[in-house]
Each structure stands twice: as C-alpha cells, then as structure tokens.
Lab assay of single mutants.
Amino acid sequence: GSVVKEKKEKALIEVRPYVEYYNELKALVSKISSSVNDLEEAIVVLREEEKKASEPFKTDIRILLDFLES
C-alpha cells in the first residue's frame, strides 16, 4: 500500500520536468491508484490508458511508465 503510493508519488515528482500534462497525469495516477492493489496492476492499467491516449499525453504516460518500471 504505502510503498506503492510512495513509488508513484516519487515517480510523479521525477517526471514532472519532462511531461507536458502534469496535472492530467497526476489525476490519472490518482484515479488508477484507487482501483488497483499494487504497482504491477497500476502499470498494466497505465499501459491500457497509453494505448487510448493521443499525443502528447501518450508520451507523458510513457515517460511515467519508464520511471515506474525502472
């Protein structure tokens, strides 16, 4: 629970300088966080969101995924 939350919060802070739609990304992460149990599940849902998103938000999600998977 809290470790996953920390990882996601740290990821958002780390990617902030590189993303165009930070507030939207943060809102998406919050929405996903409330419906998943762990980081792996969150990553799966983020990948689905990435497929549906259009640029440049798609790239923002990709940047976040790269950080979460590192």
Score class of each variant (00 low, 15 high):
P56D: 03
F67G: 02
K51D: 13
I43H: 03
Y18I: 05
I32D: 02
S54H: 09
R47Y: 12
E9T: 02
P56A: 06
E40R: 09
V4Y: 13
A42P: 01
L25W: 02
E41L: 05
K8F: 15
N37D: 09
L12S: 02
K52A: 10
K7H: 14
A53F: 06
E55P: 11
E14F: 09
I32N: 02
K51E: 13
R62A: 10
K7T: 14
E50F: 09
K8T: 15
Y21R: 07
S2M: 11
Y18Q: 03
K58I: 02
I13W: 05
K52T: 07
D66A: 13
R62S: 11
V29R: 00
E20D: 04
Y22I: 03
S30K: 07
Y18W: 04
E6N: 11
S70Q: 12
E48D: 08
D38G: 09
A42V: 15
V44R: 10
I32M: 02
E48K: 10
E24V: 05
I61P: 00
K58N: 05
Y21M: 14
V19Q: 01
S30H: 12
L25R: 00
I13L: 13
I13V: 08
Y22E: 00
A27F: 09
L46E: 00
N23K: 05
A42D: 07
S2C: 15
G1M: 06
L25S: 00
K10N: 12
L64H: 00
S70T: 11
S33K: 03
V29P: 00
Y21G: 05
N23Y: 13
S30C: 15
E48S: 10
K26A: 14
F67Q: 06
D60Q: 02
I43E: 03
K8V: 15
L39S: 07
E50L: 08
V44Q: 10
V3D: 13
R62K: 11
A53W: 06
K5G: 10
D66F: 14
E6G: 09
I43S: 04
K8N: 15
S34L: 08
L39R: 03
L68P: 00
T59Q: 12
G1C: 15
A42W: 13
I63R: 03
D60A: 05
Y22F: 13
K26S: 13
E41S: 10
S35T: 11
K51R: 13
L64I: 04
V29E: 01
R16C: 06
L64V: 02
V15C: 07
E69A: 12
I43T: 05
V19C: 03
S54N: 10
V29A: 03
I13A: 14
E9S: 04
N37V: 05
E40C: 08
S33G: 05
E48F: 11
I32V: 10
S2V: 10
N37S: 11
N37F: 07
I63Q: 02
A53P: 00
V4D: 15
K10F: 12
E50C: 14
N23A: 13
K26C: 07
A11P: 03
N37Y: 07
I43R: 04
K31I: 09
I61L: 04
A53V: 05
V4I: 12
L46K: 00
E14Y: 08
S35A: 12
L65D: 00
D66L: 13
V4F: 15
L64Q: 00
S54M: 10
S70W: 10
A42F: 15
S54V: 10
E9R: 04
E41A: 08
A42C: 15
L65C: 14
K8L: 15
V4T: 08
V36H: 06
R47M: 09
S2F: 04
L46R: 00
I43C: 12
S54Y: 08
E9G: 02
L46M: 04
K31M: 11
S34V: 10
A27R: 04
I13C: 14
L68Q: 00
N23G: 06
V3E: 13
S35N: 10
V3W: 07
E6C: 15
V29I: 10
E50R: 10
V36A: 07
L39T: 13
S30V: 08
T59E: 04
D60I: 05
E49F: 07
A53C: 07
S2T: 07
E41H: 06
L39D: 14
R16W: 05
R16A: 10
R16H: 05
E9F: 13
V4M: 14
T59P: 04
V36I: 07
K7C: 15
E24W: 04
R62F: 05
L25P: 00
Y22T: 03
V19S: 01
E55Q: 12
E6K: 04
L65E: 00
D38V: 05
D38H: 09
E49N: 05
S33M: 12
D60W: 03
L28G: 01
L25A: 01
L25D: 00
S35Q: 13
I61R: 00
K26D: 13
K52R: 12
L68C: 15
K52G: 06
S70F: 12
E20L: 14
S35V: 13
L46I: 05
L12A: 01
F67Y: 14
